[in-house]
């Protein structure tokens, strides 16, 4: 990757922006018209499809130097609503899938991502102003994070659930179950590793997600939608919106059919406002957590998995064989 930096960058777009000074910018070949590159229209990812925003509006996304990179959809309340509908619709199938199946699907995401590594390195580098090596480290870590969570899908129930030795003739078992539809405010700074670090644990346990991409750096998130769409992740399990975080988050926090909200991408004031709104239907709220010094690079714990799990405890009568002459 790092040995071919000249292949990165968006020739056409940067040319259009009138700024050609970025490293890696190919120079026009003397005597021949430079090939005009094909721009990408970034779209939302909702219900397994790639719609434009219902608002019909976009906003400019620039790199760390202020250079225009692309337009991103400016999602509206209605996009948020549609995403919740899609997420709810997908919940039954995804939460009902076997944990093994979910693990394989998450692993498939890692496989697909590995294949598109260069694209994401470029997008992360552009977005966050990182060197190629730094961006590559982020993307590699993100791929590895999918793998990490892929392995958790069929283990978390054994770690956090189990038999309870009640004092009576009852079989009693606690098992974790997904909370439902989770609104996720992706971290604002870490456009990809942070994003993956908050999405993967939510869906690993069988929840479905409505994700608000980093407001300033939405492109890696929107591209992730393309990866998910080709990774056996059923449509609607992850829905990705871009736009103004506060604007999209408000209706999600108040939405009565959203079960939980991850406030990773909210500042203090927004987090408080959303937590208050979330109380209307008692959403599970994961407040913004301190990020490790490595910017999401540390191996996570299980708290992001358990934050969106309910514990269901099932009792069933047993009966002592022969204890009183008769039994079950």
């Amino acid at each position: 990757m790092s040995d071919k930096p000249e292949k990165t960058g968006k020739t056409g777009k940067t040319a259009k922006a009138g700024k050609g000074e970025r490293p890696g910018e190919p120079e026009g070949t003397a005597g021949a018209a430079p090939r005009l590159s094909v721009f990408k229209t970034y779209k939302l990812y909702v219900g397994g499809k790639f719609p434009r925003s219902e608002s019909g509006r976009v906003y400019e996304v620039t790199d760390s130097q202020g250079t225009w990179l692309a337009n991103a959809p400016l999602s509206s309340r209605k996009d948020a609503r549609d995403a919740v509908v899609a997420a709810r619709k997908a919940f039954g199938g995804w939460s009902g899938a076997t944990a093994y199946n979910r693990g394989q699907v998450l692993y498939r995401v890692a496989e697909m991502l590995e294949g598109r590594r260069e694209q994401f390195v470029r997008e992360v580098a552009e977005a966050e102003g990182l060197s190629q090596a730094e961006a590559a480290a982020q993307v590699d870590a993100a791929v590895d994070r999918w793998v990490w969570y892929a392995g958790w899908t069929d283990k978390i129930a054994q770690v956090v659930g189990g038999a309870n030795p009640v004092a009576g003739p009852y079989f009693n078992l606690s098992t974790p179950e997904p909370t439902g539809v989770v609104a996720v405010l992706a971290p604002q700074e870490s456009s990809f590793l942070g994003l993956v670090s908050v999405i993967a644990p939510v869906i690993a346990t069988g929840n479905t997600a409505v994700v608000i991409a980093s407001e300033r750096f939405p492109l890696p998130a929107l591209s992730l939608g393309e990866v998910l769409a080709t990774s056996d992740v059923p449509g609607g399990v992850v829905n990705i919106l871009s736009g103004r975080t506060a604007e999209i988050a408000a209706p999600l926090a108040a939405h009565q059919d959203v079960n939980a909200i991850d406030l990773a991408g909210a500042d203090e004031a927004l987090a408080k406002e959303l937590e208050i709104a979330a109380a209307d239907n008692l959403k599970r709220v994961l407040r913004p957590q301190p990020v490790d010094d490595g910017g999401w690079s540390a191996t996570p714990g299980t708290e992001r998995l358990t934050a969106f799990l309910e514990t269901k405890t099932v009792w069933h009568t047993t009966g002592a064989l022969g204890a009183s002459g008769s039994s079950y």
């Binding site: 309870n164 009640v166 008692l282 309910e310 514990t311 269901k312 099932v314 009792w315 069933h316």
Partner: peptide
């Protein structure tokens, strides 16, 4: 639901987690 009793009801035990889904609490 956070607690499901089958062929019994209203059984409690200190070892058995108790609590709700949705608006029944967290």
């Amino acid at each position: 639901a956070g607690v499901v009793w089958s062929n019994t009801f209203n059984k409690f035990d200190p070892t058995s987690p108790f609590g709700g889904y949705k608006e029944s609490g967290s």
